[in-house]
Amino acid sequence: MSRDILFEIEAVDRTYVDANDNMVEALKNINLSINKGEFISIIGPSGCGKTTLLRLLAGLDVPESGKIRLSGEEIGGPDPTRGYVFQQSSLFPWLTVEKNIASGLMARGVYKQRKDEIAGYIKLIGLNGFEKTYPHQISGGMAQRVAIARALINHPVALLMDEPMGALDAFTRADLQDKLLELWRENDTTMILVTHDVDEALYLSDRVVIMSPRPGRISEVLNISLSRPRQRSSADFTALRNSILEKLHLVSEIQQPEYTI
């Protein structure tokens, strides 16, 4: 796996106005480098800015101050080279599985040149036989696989995922986690996952980024040196899980500032 830097996040702050017209610091002084080919998970308490950080990497939002660079170039907006998968699959309900996967190609005007790739991605995500089905005819796990394939067919350098498995049952979630690892190995795509699930972060990641409550800061970045494939019941896995849960408990107890007008 290459160790070249893909993303550089330098002294990033993000502030917004909430529903009560209060100024809220979502992120404060975020500094992080992400290497090409890494699998990174971002975890932390609710409201700590995980999704905000992911949206900044995608170019769907802009920092108040600081810089975010992709391969040395400052990010100026969304781009197909950064695929984004939402918590809900967000498939087009009027399109079949294969047409949903093709929708990105159509939007970019390259469908005719690359339509032959669609069958390969359907096979890659294990949905052969479901090409002509519609989103309401498949399970939530299948729908998320389609959403991932829709992002990957654009050949992104990074796949950004905002809790894509959060609403799935345990069996489907574990199955999709293994599929993600398979896709990661086969495509050498940098993957950045926002999750609340410590086991998920440990099972998938090279590094885990722990964030503290608002204003969101990076509390710690842990290198996960467990060999793959990982066993969730192993002593080393359990020890790391307990350590991270303790760290999350500590950061969640940080006194949050009061906002007044």
Results as ranks from 00 to 15, higher is better:
2 S>G: 12
3 R>K: 14
9 I>S: 07
10 E>N: 11
10 E>W: 08
11 A>W: 14
11 A>Q: 15
15 T>P: 02
15 T>G: 15
16 Y>Q: 08
21 D>N: 12
21 D>Q: 10
22 N>K: 11
23 M>N: 13
25 E>G: 14
27 L>F: 04
31 N>I: 01
34 I>H: 00
37 G>L: 03
39 F>D: 05
41 S>L: 00
45 P>S: 09
50 K>M: 05
51 T>D: 02
56 L>M: 05
57 L>V: 01
58 A>M: 08
59 G>Q: 02
61 D>E: 13
64 E>Y: 13
65 S>C: 11
66 G>L: 03
68 I>C: 05
70 L>G: 02
71 S>P: 13
72 G>D: 03
73 E>M: 09
77 G>Q: 07
78 P>F: 00
82 R>T: 08
83 G>S: 07
84 Y>D: 00
85 V>C: 10
88 Q>Y: 07
90 S>F: 09
92 F>C: 06
93 P>H: 06
95 L>T: 11
95 L>C: 14
96 T>H: 12
96 T>S: 15
97 V>E: 01
98 E>Y: 07
99 K>P: 00
100 N>Y: 07
101 I>A: 09
102 A>S: 12
105 L>E: 07
107 A>D: 10
107 A>Q: 10
108 R>L: 14
108 R>N: 08
113 Q>R: 13
116 D>K: 11
116 D>L: 13
118 I>Q: 00
119 A>D: 09
122 I>W: 04
124 L>W: 10
128 N>H: 15
132 K>M: 07
132 K>Y: 14
135 P>D: 09
135 P>C: 13
135 P>F: 11
138 I>Q: 03
142 M>Y: 02
142 M>A: 04
142 M>S: 03
146 V>R: 00
151 A>T: 06
151 A>P: 01
152 L>G: 01
152 L>M: 10
155 H>Y: 11
157 V>C: 06
158 A>F: 04
159 L>E: 01
159 L>S: 06
161 M>R: 04
162 D>Q: 01
162 D>H: 04
166 G>S: 10
167 A>F: 02
173 R>E: 03
175 D>P: 01
176 L>I: 15
176 L>V: 12
179 K>S: 12
183 L>C: 11
185 R>M: 10
186 E>D: 14
188 D>G: 06
190 T>P: 00
190 T>L: 06
192 I>L: 07
192 I>G: 02
192 I>Q: 03
195 T>K: 00
195 T>I: 08
195 T>Q: 01
196 H>N: 09
196 H>F: 06
198 V>N: 00
199 D>I: 04
202 L>H: 03
203 Y>V: 00
208 V>S: 06
212 S>W: 01
214 R>P: 01
215 P>K: 04
217 R>P: 00
217 R>W: 02
218 I>A: 08
220 E>T: 06
220 E>S: 15
223 N>W: 10
225 S>L: 15
226 L>Q: 05
227 S>T: 12
229 P>S: 14
230 R>V: 06
231 Q>C: 14
232 R>W: 14
235 A>K: 13
237 F>E: 12
238 T>Q: 15
238 T>I: 13
243 S>L: 14
248 L>H: 03
253 E>W: 06
254 I>Y: 09
255 Q>D: 15
256 Q>K: 12
257 P>S: 01
261 I>F: 13
